[in-house]
Amino acid sequence: MAAGGDHGSPDSYRSPLASRYASPEMCFVFSDRYKFRTWRQLWLWLAEAEQTLGLPITDEQIQEMKSNLENIDFKMAAEEEKRLRHDVMAHVHTFGHCCPKAAGIIHLGATSCYVGDNTDLIILRNALDLLLPKLARVISRLADFAKERASLPTLGFTHFQPAQLTTVGKRCCLWIQDLCMDLQNLKRVRDDLRFRGVKGTTGTQASFLQLFEGDDHKVEQLDKMVTEKAGFKRAFIITGQTYTRKVDIEVLSVLASLGASVHKICTDIRLLANLKEMEEPFEKQQIGSSAMPYKRNPMRSERCCSLARHLMTLVMDPLQTASVQWFERTLDDSANRRICLAEAFLTADTILNTLQNISEGLVVYPKVIERRIRQELPFMATENIIMAMVKAGGSRQDCHEKIRVLSQQAASVVKQEGGDNDLIERIQVDAYFSPIHSQLDHLLDPSSFTGRASQQVQRFLEEEVYPLLKPYESVMKVKAELCL
């Protein structure tokens, strides 16, 4: 049975990233139509530049190519590739079939990587351009969430054990800070992308030097003109047959890092959902379990974690691919890159769409948070109580021993009897502590235990987050809708 299948058929496997999760716009960027249309555009740009620099290419040939950029006979191309065992030459023939007058000058002087690699770089750039505003929107939604809850005390956790208090907004800023680093890295790697350009079979530009009869300047002009037509500021000066596969490492490393950030955020949300302090959106008709109707599973956060793990592992592909590119190139890269580049971007696209949807509907339960604080705060307040007693004339050592005994009794009630923490009640009825009984409410005010959390939130948002989001103001209103 021949390899390949009808990918629109229910009898043929289709990647869930495309069929179930990723956005239509990201799927289109990695589609065959987008790819092969870009090949034709690159052939047109090459012909236009070659004509401008004096090669015998007519206006009629150029116009014929322009008129057929979208006229792609995919069936013919597939048949040609089956016959020739070469995808680029299959599309040269297919393009030439609908451009008979231009057929002889299509791909003039070029090698397969002229269309293959340059198209990949265009796709990487455009895919990054799709991700950047999506990530900015996630940051914006979380920034709104953090600002609104900047002063809401909550129990902090280290080692997932109760620690000092923080605020809900401050905790959210930990998430935002990681995503801001990801946004900066995505922008950097996007701006650092260079075009492969017009380089020939081993990167020496020998074929173009021959076409222009040894004119170095025209060869350099050709490279520059096509690079500018493709919208790049610069091209690699040095290439082998391909652009260095280190570029793929750079791009997928940034995406993998984004995956790590999203995994951490969504894990926190899942843990908070278990504590009943916070939940992701839950639709009115949504079913959490087929057997347990009360369940409210954090399905979206779980999906993000599941896909983020996949995204983090994909960076190993370009690392290994770059390491086995012998001399000017081997074909070890080809099949692998067809999979890992598309999957990385479709996965990143999915987790950003999902995280935006989550961040637009996060639900906080202040009463649950308050109750958990009441359970733990008495123990945390013991040092403040000791200091207040010393100020009232008591002995630190005597007070410490009193607190120690009462704390152990209260802990026994919590752990052995399943009761509430009654340390404060014990202190309130103990005559030894009568000098500070009137101060206990103040000493137990949760806001006095959150330090500068709310001020940190305000400063972080104003100095770091809002300036970073400013270039994306025009796209901030787009909502994230999930079908599944």
Rank of each mutant, 00 (worst) to 15 (best):
D182N: 02
L307R: 02
A102R: 00
E48T: 06
D445A: 15
Y114M: 06
G394S: 12
A342I: 12
D59E: 07
L443K: 02
R190S: 09
Q285M: 14
T313G: 14
A235I: 09
L423A: 04
S434V: 09
L406C: 09
E417T: 07
F236G: 02
H442E: 12
Y114H: 03
K470Y: 15
F345Y: 08
A392S: 10
D333M: 01
V88E: 01
E464K: 03
T244C: 12
D441A: 11
L444N: 01
T350H: 10
R83D: 14
K229Q: 08
V198Y: 04
F433A: 05
L211P: 14
A49E: 04
P133N: 14
D349C: 09
D422R: 07
I369S: 12
G418W: 03
H437T: 09
E328D: 05
R396A: 05
E228P: 04
K391R: 13
L484E: 13
E417D: 09
K415S: 06
I106E: 00
S140I: 13
S448Q: 15
H91T: 04
R303A: 02
S261H: 00
F208M: 12
C305M: 04
P56S: 09
V254Y: 14
D398N: 13
M299A: 15
D398E: 09
S261N: 00
M299G: 06
I176D: 05
H97T: 08
P293K: 01
V189C: 15
R33P: 08
E213Y: 13
A291S: 04
G197Y: 02
Q161P: 00
L55E: 11
E79K: 12
H437Q: 10
L155N: 01
D332T: 00
S257G: 11
E80R: 12
I436R: 03
T350N: 13
T158Y: 00
F145W: 10
Q221V: 09
D32E: 14
S289K: 01
P100W: 07
D117Y: 00
A344F: 01
N71V: 11
P318M: 05
V168L: 09
T158D: 00
Q61E: 09
D215A: 13
G116M: 06
P24E: 09
Y472F: 15
L423H: 05
S9D: 12
C304H: 04
Y34T: 05
V254G: 10
M65W: 01
R14E: 15
V254F: 05
A49R: 01
K402G: 05
M292T: 02
R372I: 05
G104E: 06
L186P: 03
T158S: 14
T267S: 11
A47Q: 04
L69F: 06
D441V: 13
F212L: 12
G54K: 09
P298I: 03
M299Q: 12
D430Q: 11
Q161E: 05
H442N: 13
R371W: 02
F208D: 05
I269N: 03
R337T: 01
T94R: 08
D120T: 06
L132V: 13
K82A: 10
R452L: 09
P100M: 09
E60I: 08
S395G: 11
T52Y: 10
Y466V: 12
K199W: 00
N357R: 04
S257T: 08
E343T: 12
Q177E: 15
L183W: 11
L482W: 08
G96I: 08
D192S: 11
L128P: 02
S112I: 00
G288V: 02
R270V: 04
E425M: 08
M299S: 12
D87C: 00
P56Q: 07
V390E: 03
I249W: 03
D317E: 05
K35E: 07
R338T: 04
V368R: 11
F327V: 13
M316A: 09
W39P: 00
K35R: 13
Q61T: 07
F282T: 07
L193W: 05
C266R: 02
K367E: 07
A480R: 13
K246P: 02
G418H: 01
D32L: 13
N118T: 05
S31I: 00
M380E: 11
Q455E: 12
P100Y: 09
I105F: 11
V478T: 14
A49L: 01
M65C: 08
G109C: 03
T119R: 02
K470R: 13
D349R: 03
M387E: 00
